[in-house]
Design a protein around this nucleic acid. Structure first.
Lengths: 157, 157
DNA sequence: TATTGTTATACTCTATAACTATA
DNA sequence: TATAGTTATAGAGTATAACAATA
C-alpha cells in the first residue's frame, strides 16, 4: 500500500510513535479494532453484533434472566437492552415471559432455535479468534486474558 | 460500580459467564471501556479525545506531516482527520501550512502552545494509566503491550 | 419511594461517497 | 487518472432523562 516514490513520512511500522505505542489504552483500542473487524467479517452481514451475541449467551446460560440483570452483567444500560431483546425475539431466538410474583419483570428464555443459533455462533466466534490469533500461543492467550481481566478489576481504583 | 443490594442473579464476578469470559474480543472490549472511561474522567471536560491526542502526538513528533499520513498512522480515514485538525487549529495548537512543490497538501506543524499542551496531556495520560493500572506490575504491562501489538500485527491473517 | 421495562432523544465515533483542486 | 483535503451524510453504539406499571 501507499507506494510513494519519495517516501517522506514513516508509515506502518508499529513502533515509530513511541508517545502512543507505550500507552496501554492506545494499544487496547488498536487491537480491539483488529479483532472487531475480523469478527464482523467472519460472522457476516446478518451475524450477531457483539452485544447481541453476549446477551444471547447470557440468556442461554441463565434462562429466565431479566433484562436488567443482562444489562448489569454486560456493563451497559437497561435501555440499551430493549433493542437487543427485540431483535432476538423477532428472530424467535428468545422469548419474553411473565414472571409470577413480580409483574414488572419479564424473564428471558431461549427457544430451541435460540440455543442452536447460539451454539453455532459460538463455534463461529471461536473459529474466528483461533484463526486471527494463530500467531499467539495458548499460553500467551491465557496470559492476555488474565491481564485484561485485571484491568477490568481495576475499575474505580 | 453496580454494588448490588439484593442479588437475585450472579453479578459482577468476572468468571461467571464462561462463554464470554474466554473470548479475547470480549475481554478486550471490557478492558478498553474501563481504560477509556478513566481516561475521559481524568482528562476532563475539555481534554483531548483519544484521537485528537493521538493526532497531536504525531504532529509534534513529525512536524510537517500531512493529514493523509496521520490518518494512515492511526488507521482511520482521511475524512475523519478534518474535524480533528480543525479542532487543534482552532485551539491554536497546530497550523496548516502550504507545502512548496505540491499545492494539494497542507503540512501540519505544532505551535509552541501545541507542544506544551501535548507535553502536559502526555503527563496527564501517563498519570491516569499509572494510577488506574497500579495493580499491574511493570513486567505485566510490558507483556500486555507486547501481546496487544501481536494482535495488531495479526491483521489480515 | 424504588425498580422494570420502555421510549425519545442525543451524542460520540467512524465510515462511505462524492466533490475540488491539484498532480 | 490518481491523490490531498474536504463536505455531506449515515450508521453503529451507547447514554441520559423521563414515563407507566408495579413493587
Amino acid at each position: 500500500m501507499a507506494g510513494k516514490t519519495a517516501k517522506k513520512e514513516p508509515i506502518d511500522a508499529a513502533d515509530e510513535i513511541p508517545a502512543l505505542e507505550s500507552l496501554i489504552g492506545y494499544n487496547l483500542k488498536r487491537a480491539y479494532v483488529v479483532v472487531y473487524e475480523d469478527y464482523r467479517a467472519t460472522l457476516g452481514q446478518d451475524g450477531f453484533a457483539p452485544r447481541v451475541f453476549s446477551a444471547l449467551a447470557l440468556v442461554v446460560q441463565f434462562p429466565n434472566i431479566t433484562q436488567s440483570a443482562v444489562a448489569r452483567h454486560l456493563g451497559i444500560e437497561r435501555s440499551g437492552l430493549v433493542a437487543i431483546v427485540d431483535e432476538l425475539e423477532k428472530r424467535k431466538l428468545i422469548l419474553r415471559t411473565p414472571v409470577p410474583g413480580d409483574r414488572r419483570v419479564q424473564a428471558l428464555v431461549p427457544t430451541e432455535a435460540g440455543k442452536a443459533a447460539f451454539a453455532q455462533a459460538q463455534k463461529d466466534v471461536t473459529a474466528h479468534e483461533d484463526r486471527l490469533l494463530s500467531n499467539l500461543s495458548d499460553a500467551e492467550k491465557q496470559t492476555l486474558t488474565r491481564l485484561l481481566k485485571k484491568i477490568r478489576n481495576a475499575e474505580g481504583s
